[in-house]
Write a protein that binds this DNA or RNA. Structure first.
Length: 463
RNA sequence: GGCGCCAUAGCCAAGCGGUAAGGCAAAGGUCUGCAACACCUCUAUCACCGGUUCGAUUCCGGUUGGCGCCUCCA
């Protein structure tokens, strides 16, 4: 299995620290609002990575945090005149609802920054003791960037370049000794929540949160650390500095970063008016479709979002689901499984695994699923044994499950009224009264019921 | 200014040294009262210019055009 490692800029063979086990940490959202579809990309992708690793037999310990204290949350809380926890708890709940719709499994642990403050203080103390951090008069604690020799190794920047960069890193009035230094702890301002610490009543800097939570729940050395590509610098670079300076060992072995989701090839932003939350999309599409769409491109390539592309994804997903439904409803003669079926499934599994082993090439993996779908549809036409049918269904279900793609069976619970209308239409069709038959079909459509006349009779499903 | 990424059919998207997977859309056909589903058929010399090579979409250099990070951000 090969994984592209941002650290080396290359695909590397994946070798876990401990055989058979994978420890992974993915930076979660800051919960000040509903998550947007850009947030959904890493969530869906890393959930898929986790599912695949488990499918390949690894025991995965997956940790993803919620940043539940930051400027935006404080602002939202002040606007609503409530406690920060009201805002963060609310959006954590909403985030979980969206995650469920996207078929994202709960992490083994979902730590919240505010519940890990003592550990953060302890880590900051260690950094000060080791000479990697210092406190200034107002109680702010900074990380001494230059004290960590390898700073820049993840984002492939060197300290000189950073200092000579166009942008000014030193904000006026800052009390840091070096413009490159970053905050570990900052004093609270009026109207802000604070926690007592040896330096002042205040709150942790963003970067220390992740270093701390990863250490507490996974240990000082982890296998995979993931997040959006915008986090490479400075967030992850700073995490490395803090963790490695503090713990004295290499922090994460593989750093994975997903590219952005754009709208009309532009970065999604509120000011451009092209900002969509996952909840917005859920009103128009089953979130399963959003997930399928997100998986149709490689995670390191930017992906463009649009209505047209979603429609295309919807049709594609339906093709897969239709094959699943057809298998479900197929009544084959009970006989031996065909050798051809076994061979095909083996072939598909090899191509699927190869795709995913190659730095999680989900687009290629989906192509393998379509390959299976075509085989199923063709086999179904020429007839197959019930055993073959079951085997194919199990294979399809398995692969879709690894991708987190939901397969949905139409409601089998027949509403009496619906059945009555269907019977009436069938009678009309028999009498060749097609006007009446179509009228009833339209009526059912209005009720959200779609009919299909197949060789095996009338099939219906909800829109 | 620094660092980096990308350019493949109408749209989306794999491949990354041996003459191009897959999906959507469109078209023709089979099936069907019609529709839907499904099946079959059909659509590309891979931005441009040089170089390396027996051979390049795949490697190197350049050009053009997009984009990202360097600042809160998935």
């Amino acid at each position: 299995m090969k994984i592209y490692n941002t650290l080396s800029g290359k695909k590397e063979e994946f070798v876990p620290i401990e055989e058979g086990k994978v420890k992974m940490y993915v930076c979660g959202p800051t919960v000040y609002n509903f998550i947007h579809i850009g947030n959904a990309r890493p969530m869906v992708f890393f959930d898929t990575v986790r599912r695949y690793l488990e499918y390949r037999g690894y025991e995965v310990n997956f940790v993803s945090n919620y940043t539940d204290i930051d400027d935006k949350i404080i602002k939202a809380a002040n606007d609503e005149k409530v406690d920060c926890s009201v805002i963060s708890d609310r959006y954590i709940m909403e985030c979980k609802r969206d995650a469920e719709g996207l078929n994202i499994r709960e992490a083994n642990t979902h730590p919240k920054a505010t519940e890990e403050i003592p550990e953060m203080i302890e880590m900051i103390e260690t950094l000060i003791k080791k000479g990697h951090a210092y406190a200034v008069e107002d109680g702010t604690v900074y990380f001494k960037t230059k004290s960590f020799k390898e700073y820049g190794k993840l984002s492939h920047k060197n300290l000189e370049e950073l200092q000579e960069g166009h942008r000014r890193l030193l904000v006026a009035g800052d009390s840091k000794k070096d413009p490159l230094d970053f905050v570990l702890w900052k004093p609270k301002k009026d109207g802000e929540p604070g926690w007592e610490s040896p330096w002042c009543s205040g709150r942790p800097g963003w970067h220390i949160e992740c270093s701390c939570m990863a250490k507490k729940y996974l240990g000082t050395q982890i296998d995979i650390h993931g997040g959006g590509e915008d986090l490479v610098f400075p967030h992850h670079e700073n995490e490395i500095a803090q963790s490695e300076a503090g713990n004295g060992v290499t922090f994460a072995k593989y750093w994975m970063h997903n590219a952005f989701l754009n709208i009309d090839n532009k970065k999604m932003s509120k000011s451009l008016g092209n900002f969509f939350t996952v909840r917005d999309i859920s009103r128009k599409y089953d979130l399963n479709i959003l997930r399928f769409f997100l998986l149709s491109a490689h995670y390191r390539s930017p992906v463009n979002f649009s209505d047209e592309l979603m429609e295309s994804a919807k049709s594609g997903w339906e093709r897969i689901n239709n094959a699943y439904i057809a298998l479900q409803e197929y009544a084959g003669e009970n006989s031996e499984i065909s050798g051809e079926v076994i061979k095909k499934i083996e072939e598909i599994k090899v191509s699927f695994n190869n795709a995913m082993d190659n730095d999680f090439n989900t687009a290629d993996a989906v192509a393998s699923i379509f390959d299976l779908v075509r085989f199923i549809n063709t086999a179904l036409r020429s007839g197959l044994s019930s055993k073959s049918c079951e085997t194919l269904k199990a294979a399809l279900t398995k692969l879709c499950d690894v991708m987190g793609i939901r397969l949905i069976l139409p409601d089998s619970e027949l509403d009496g009224q619906i059945q009555e209308l269907i019977d009436k239409r069938q009678a009309a069709r028999k009498n060749k009264d097609f006007n009446e038959a179509d009228r009833i079909r339209d009526e059912l459509l209005e009720m959200g019921i779609v009919l299909k006349d197949t060789r095996e009779g009338v099939k219906w499903s909800r829109v």
